[in-house]
Design a protein around this nucleic acid. Structure first.
Lengths: 341, 341
DNA sequence: TTGTAGGCGTTATCAC
DNA sequence: GTGATAACGCCTACAA
């Protein structure tokens, strides 16, 4: 008979090789302590039966899983996808496995998945941004789960984090826009509720413009869900004002791409008719025409650095202090200079 | 003292509530069989201690995890991201959890992650495309692991799969291009090695054009890795020929977007100077200018359907027969009609 | 209705 | 070098 349809266990291998389970286990985990002859025999049986150690059983006794969990808002957003791919590659490099789940931006789902990751014995967890209920952090702390916040960095926040300063970055972009002569600003922000990255970006713009003395009524902010279509609609609304803005600054490149697309439909030239800026510098930013002036974020680097930082926390308990990653403004065709007032 | 830094177990809860572990377990798993008074007391302790059942231990005895594994080539590709998000949402809907990992298009990594999923007790597994070593399928079959192939559908392949017919879809697009009068065709394909989707798409074009009697030398195929830049470079190479093609058909929208971008740089107008087509109909397709003529693939629908099919396989062992999903050609500005010969 | 006890598959600590 | 054996945390007959 060919093969039993049952999953082989350590015991099956042991019987087949005529040794004890302990020996089989040793062959797999500390091969040098067992003599070659038996090792060969055992490993042959392992291969023949296609034995794979049961993860749960192993985790239970080892109290270690070499697994890192990550919860992201959605896989559909390129800025998470790229960084996460790098995160996972670096984890793999260092012998860890990644468990990802997405919360669809819903706190209650995030919490559920957090518990699931803990129950699954994750050695450490990566979370996006700071904003969540304090009870979550308490829960995590109570079972000393190493946690790293990524995609954001706030100097005054004690949580270990790898990211960049959303507020300062957006402020810098705001100042650049100001220097280009713009005095009527439209802003399309992502949803800020429960999303500290989006919040900080808007705050950064406030910082920039109000410090320069821009009257509040010259700064109009619209908040919409993430999406091309949503960006386009918000753009249309902003441009429908009696005195439309000369520049529309978007909370991310996807919203900006939507705005650019809509501008084309509305026969508004960029940057002659209106300037548009983005944030993130995903591939989209260079695909739209004209290309987006935006803030470049080192996503892959952030993913890799997060992996290393988190593993260090897990293995040696050392966390930080971390410095913010550098973001960089990319000036491209979508931002124009205003000559006269 | 506030809280012990140890993870609470069933036993801790039992002690705290003054009952046996069996009762605690029952409160959680079959609440109606235990009297209200004790249940309340137990559940209060569960909440107070923040108890979460250990996943590994539970899986070991239940032989069931309500977990579905998925291995995708990369998270950086929007076509997987979107479908996977829908897949995960539908799994969640039906009480399952998703474990994703990405193989970076490397078979040996895919195999490693497959074993990891099996070891973790996944109840079922989703794989992208058919192309992989037969030994993999044997391995999976030997422990009767339900497996569903997605993102592809081949009528003559017995493996359960949810997807669309890449070959037929691309053939249809090829015929449309032919009907637009094009007789010199450039093709930018993704890497076909180990990627049956890419292979089938090229074959579909062969089907279309050779059946029409197009001389083989009028059909030039270049194969490049997935990426905007790669698409652009391939485009430049195709257009550098003595007699450049009148249409460049790309294996996916990302390559096509790269081609469009490069065309702009080269001052070649689309579609007057050259036509370009894509495949997938991701958002990018409508962002580039002119918008891409492409094949629309119902990614979210595919993800949802895959989730349902896989869970059905897990729960009732019934798999299929499945019908291919419909793909649909989207005609947009990037494809032009050739008047004379 | 609740408690007792055995076993799920592994690893680690002992003896031998 | 190798083999018993005791955990690890949970569920579930079976008993009470």
């Amino acid at each position: 008979m060919p093969k039993k349809p049952t999953i082989p266990t350590l015991d099956d291998v042991a019987k087949a090789a005529g040794v004890s389970t302990a020996t089989v286990s040793r062959c797999l985990n500390s091969p040098d302590v067992v003599v070659k002859a038996t090792k060969d025999r055992v490993l042959k049986e392992v291969a023949r039966l296609g034995y794979t150690p049961n993860f749960g059983a192993r985790a239970m006794v080892a109290r270690r899983t070499f697994t890192i969990g990550a919860i992201i808002p959605t896989m559909e957003n390129a800025i998470f996808a790229r960084g996460l791919q790098a995160f996972q590659e670096q984890l793999h490099e260092r012998g860890y496995t990644l468990l990802v789940s997405s919360s669809s931006y819903r706190p209650e789902i995030e919490e559920e998945q957090l518990r699931s990751l803990v129950a699954r014995g994750a050695d450490g967890i990566l979370l996006i941004g700071y904003a969540r209920d304090a009870s979550i952090y308490d829960y995590l702390a109570s079972r000393n789960m190493p946690v790293l916040v990524a995609w954001a960095y706030e100097a005054d926040n004690p949580l270990p984090s790898i990211g960049f300063d959303n507020r300062a970055s957006m402020r810098a972009l705001g100042e650049l826009v100001w220097d280009h002569g713009h005095r009527r600003i439209g802003v399309i922000s992502g949803v800020t509720q429960g999303n500290d990255r989006a919040q900080r970006r808007v705050e950064g713009l406030m910082d920039a413009f109000l410090a320069k003395g821009l009257p509040a009524e010259n700064l109009k902010v619209i908040e919409v869900p993430y999406g091309i279509k949503e960006g386009g609609e918000a753009f249309a609304r902003l441009m429908a004002a009696d005195v439309p803005p000369t520049v529309v600054m978007c909370g991310n490149d996807v919203l900006a791409a939507g705005a650019v697309q809509r501008a084309r439909l509305m026969k508004i030239r960029i940057p002659e008719g209106v300037s548009i800026t983005g944030f993130d510098d995903i591939e989209l930013a260079r695909i739209v025409s004209p290309a987006l002036t935006t803030v470049h974020v080192p996503h892959r680097k952030m993913g890799r650095a997060s992996a290393n930082a988190l593993i260090d926390m897990v293995e040696s308990g050392i966390s930080g202090p971390f410095a913010p990653l550098e973001s960089k403004i990319k000036i491209r065709g979508s931002l124009g200079r205003l000559s006269g007032p």
